[in-house]
């Protein structure tokens, strides 16, 4: 079913990206040292980022369960596209492990990588380019595995 794409959906997406970006900056998620400090459970642990997740869930969960879940269409008349899968497959687990290794090595996940681009740091640009190369390589790598 084709939906009318309108300016409003672009503007709302822009605003949502902006809100999340502001949240990433204010919360400290954009600071790789802080992320590493949170992951350093057996060293000098900084529990701050657990509060980031708590704050995010405290807003997302009630709005989802009380307001969004019962809707058939979004407020801008878009089809609700919510994942329904419940199976645990190898791809999910292997993907999460690979992501966990990368996150632990650099302390940067996809959102902060994009939000940090404005710093103009060459290391960040390099990270984002490598991340997009990873996005591009993953399906090719998987289809190679499928063939063999």
């Amino acid at each position: 079913m084709k939906q009318p794409t309108n300016v409003k959906t672009y503007l709302s997406a822009l605003a949502c990206g902006l809100l999340m970006g502001l949240g990433l900056v204010i919360s400290g998620m954009v600071n790789p040292q802080k992320v590493i400090g949170f992951l350093d459970l057996f060293g000098h642990w900084d529990p701050s980022l657990a509060f980031v997740m708590a704050g995010a869930l405290a807003v997302y969960a009630p709005v989802y369960w009380l307001v969004v879940k019962r809707r058939e269409k979004s407020a801008l008349q878009q089809t609700m596209q919510i994942p329904v899968r419940t199976d645990l497959d190898c791809k999910l687990l292997i993907g999460a492990i690979l992501f966990g290794i990368g996150w632990g090595l650099a302390g940067i996940c996809p959102g902060p990588a994009l939000t940090l681009l404005t710093t103009g740091e060459s290391q960040i640009v390099l990270f984002v380019v490598a991340m997009f190369a990873g996005f591009w390589l993953a399906p090719k790598w998987l289809s190679l595995l499928d063939k063999n």
């Binding site: 949502c16 990206g17 999340m20 204010i26 704050g55 995010a56 878009q78 994009l114």
Partner: peptide, 26 residues
């Protein structure tokens, strides 16, 4: 600041679902 920033992240995420019907998976 972690709680406040987290709340903004959650707000941006759930608004994308409410308005556009999409999951905010970056």
């Amino acid at each position: 600041s972690a709680l406040l920033g987290g709340a903004l992240i959650g707000a941006g995420g759930v608004l994308l679902l409410l308005l556009n019907g999409r999951i905010a998976g970056i």
